[in-house]
């Protein structure tokens, strides 16, 4: 199978693994896809078993005020997705239904719902940390649906997908050491599944000319790493795991202090669960029952 997005997409569809919706970057997943995803997520849980992370689950919508405070719009306005709702009266409702029936625009009848779709899995955690952390800081574990407005025919570029995310907050040494431990763990985990993974310094898709400077800063300071695997291209491998060191960005924003009163630092890491599944399907085939025994035994034990 060549490394290209059309072949992978068509293979996933032909094997029933994903179910197209008619909108780019939005598709369903069948039971086989979901089982692979859950098995892989289970492997991560095994790695994290003795870390003492606090599990949290938030709904896939974020209060708009938290979204604004986080500064997402300064960096990634092009990816943000909002939520609107009909808040009109009975007369407006008649008009709304008429316009939809006649395929006319009706966005002026919709109003902001006060929430945004979750842009990144870790965002709801930071406001909850406002105040002073205990000695040793805190560690969180979550699996969240996230949303990015980047419709694409590439199967790996989805408008909504799941991320298994960990967040560490504490002293700079604690946070960096934790990040480095997971960078090694993540790489080892993916290599153990016989995926040609490697890690590299990376940057986020910051918006505009200012964004080019932010990306260059991020790379120069090595604030972001990714574990990448060829999935739809050999030359441009796909990021399946991402490690972001925020320094004190979120701590300044939300007032998060170490036990000694100094400003805390934070880092997060996330496995793109659908992308890992797609890497497995691309490298080992669309039928998990035919995968190498070593890979199967890791996932199915």
């Amino acid at each position: 199978m060549p490394f290209d997005s059309t072949t992978l997409y068509e293979g996933l569809v032909a094997n029933g693994l994903i179910i197209p919706s008619g909108v780019q970057g939005v598709f369903g997943r069948n039971a086989v896809f979901e089982e692979v995803l859950e098995r892989f997520n289970g492997l991560i849980s095994r790695l994290a078993l003795n870390d003492g992370a606090e599990k949290m689950t938030f709904p896939p919508i974020l209060p708009r005020q938290v979204f604004e405070q986080s500064g997402y719009m300064k960096s990634f306005p092009q990816l943000a997705m909002g939520v609107t709702s009909f808040c009109g009266c009975a007369a407006d409702h008649g008009e709304l239904v008429r316009r939809i029936e006649e395929s006319e625009p009706y966005d002026d009848l919709m109003a902001p719902a006060g929430v945004m779709l979750m842009p990144a899995a870790c965002y709801p955690v930071y406001p909850s940390l406002a105040g002073t952390l205990p000695h040793g800081g805190r560690l969180f574990d979550m699996t969240h649906w996230v949303f990015r407005h980047e419709p694409s025919s590439e199967p790996t570029r989805m408008q909504s997908f799941r991320v298994r995310e960990f967040v560490r907050a504490g002293s700079p040494e604690t946070v960096i050491q934790w990040r480095d431990t997971w960078l090694a763990r993540g790489l080892e985990l993916l290599l153990s599944l016989e995926l040609p993974a490697r890690s590299e310094v990376a940057s986020d898709p910051f918006f505009g000319r200012g964004g080019r400077m932010l990306a260059s800063n991020q790379r120069e300071q090595k604030l972001k790493f990714e574990v990448v695997i060829p999935v739809i291209s050999i030359e441009n491998p796909t990021a399946v795991c991402s490690f972001n060191y925020h320094q004190d960005h979120f701590s300044q924003t939300f007032g998060i202090l170490q036990a000694d009163g100094q400003l805390a630092q934070t880092a997060c890491l996330g496995f793109g669960l659908e992308r890992v599944c797609m890497a497995l399907f691309r490298h080992h085939g669309f039928r998990p029952e035919l995968w190498p025994q070593s890979v199967r035994s890791l996932l199915w034990t």
């Binding site: 200012g210 932010l214 800063n217």
Partner: peptide, 11 residues
């Protein structure tokens, strides 16, 4: 000087 502030200075 933060990264975001440096962008504002640049612009």
């Amino acid at each position: 000087l933060t990264s975001h502030a440096s962008v504002n200075v640049m612009l």
